[in-house]
Write a protein that binds this DNA or RNA. Structure first.
Lengths: 226, 226
DNA sequence: TAACGTTCGAATGGATCCATTCGCAAGAAA
DNA sequence: TTTCTTGCGAATGGATCCATTCGAACGTTA
């Protein structure tokens, strides 16, 4: 019995981490929207584990800001207010350029080529889900050569906690077709290709700020699924 | 038996959270320096709990960046490099002014009076520990009326993970006697008192940046206790 | 009929027990 | 003498069992 389990998890990524990743993936995919109840038993049965590592995983996700725990009561996917979302974008506007500046000098030709390819695919993206996946891959590729796991983690958590609202916004406003995003992305790739850190920094800050402004114009994002 | 435990923890703050707070306090106090091994058994015995909530607490602290876990091996207090420390300060320089701007309009006269009092006590601080406690209280009072738990948590974690190195620096450079810090604090209180957000923002950014520069001049901080 | 209290059930929290793994030390061989 | 191997022990990881708590539904009373 235990042999089977040991064999199934070859590199042994520790159950609690495996489960935390799985639940996080479900939340990011939209399967568990903000406000959704998370039952330990269900997760445990679903991922073939006991409730113990599930509990540890929930503590991890709570620290990440994705989940809210209430003592002796249960776990729910964290919800945000419009003010929370706007603050997230304000913080992102100030720190993501830092991450980009840190990563930029080490991006090589292959990375830049891949950025061009991703951007073309983003412009051709047919639906919201493809746009979200490609956009995430695009920006994280620009950050991929960073040297600061701490900063990268902060940024990643800001992306994670706002993912659901970005999806809702994209679905409502049809933002994958927004020409402004495409223009900003092209300016960003161009600056990166020229290793022009200052311009890249400015474009990225603009990109985030403008998105934040657009989001603020759609407060109905928060009442969509009610 | 279980009755005794129930009675002892009156508001029932959940064991894992109580333990996480306790271990965090030990790390911040310097009792557990970076690199120190953390054994589950010892913590459990010390805090009169089983190993289970200790494990959960360690997962929480790992997510906070204070502890590093290695599968099937153990837990250690997280260590930083000089590059990590500098990046922490760069991030702080960009986001702490945001937290201050958010909090400033709601600071009342009593808060300002307390800031004056704290600043006087900081200038009279005799030793490093007093300086650290008072300085932390001073700055967090300026943030206390914030409306963004997310941002406050990010900032708090940056303070936590760098606490040990700030202590080491203060002890080596005798920074509690630095007149520059006192000048910056006074400028900050003055701007806050006048509700001058722009000036307060600039002074705080300067305060953090200058501290970062000073820290960078003392790389021996990282080899002090070796 | 509405509001309050009580009871029961389901879900979470914690403790103990067992399996697994990693590191260290001792010993043997080159 | 140095290096590789092997075995033992200690510490972590996971599963099951039991206690506790919160919430909802039902019944009672004003």
């Amino acid at each position: 019995m235990s042999v089977v389990r040991t064999m199934s998890t070859q590199p042994s990524p520790v159950e609690s981490r495996r489960i935390a990743d799985a639940v996080r993936a479900q939340i990011l995919a939209g399967d568990l929207p903000p406000g959704a109840r998370i039952k330990q038993d269900e997760i445990a049965a679903e991922l073939r584990a006991s409730r113990l590592p599930v509990r540890e995983a929930l503590r991890i996700l709570e620290s990440s800001g994705l989940v809210v725990l209430k003592a002796n009561s249960g776990a729910w996917v964290a919800e945000m207010t419009l003010a929370d979302l706007r603050m997230s974008y304000t913080v992102r506007e100030r720190i993501e350029p830092l991450l980009l500046l840190d990563s930029l000098p080490r991006l090589d030709e292959a990375d830049v080529a891949r950025l061009h390819e991703l951007q073309e695919r983003i412009e051709e993206a047919a639906d919201v889900e493809h746009f979200l996946v490609l956009d995430r891959e695009f920006h994280w590729l620009t950050y991929s050569r960073h040297s600061s796991p701490q900063l990268a983690q902060i940024v990643a958590r800001l992306w994670d906690t706002t993912q659901h609202y970005r999806r809702t916004f994209a679905a409502m406003a049809g933002s994958q077709g927004s020409w402004t995003i495409q223009a900003e992305h092209r300016l960003l790739v161009d600056a990166i290709e020229r290793r022009d850190g200052e311009t890249a920094e400015s474009v990225l800050a603009l990109h985030i700020r403008r998105t934040s402004v657009e989001l603020s114009r759609h407060p109905e994002i928060f009442t969509a699924g009610r």
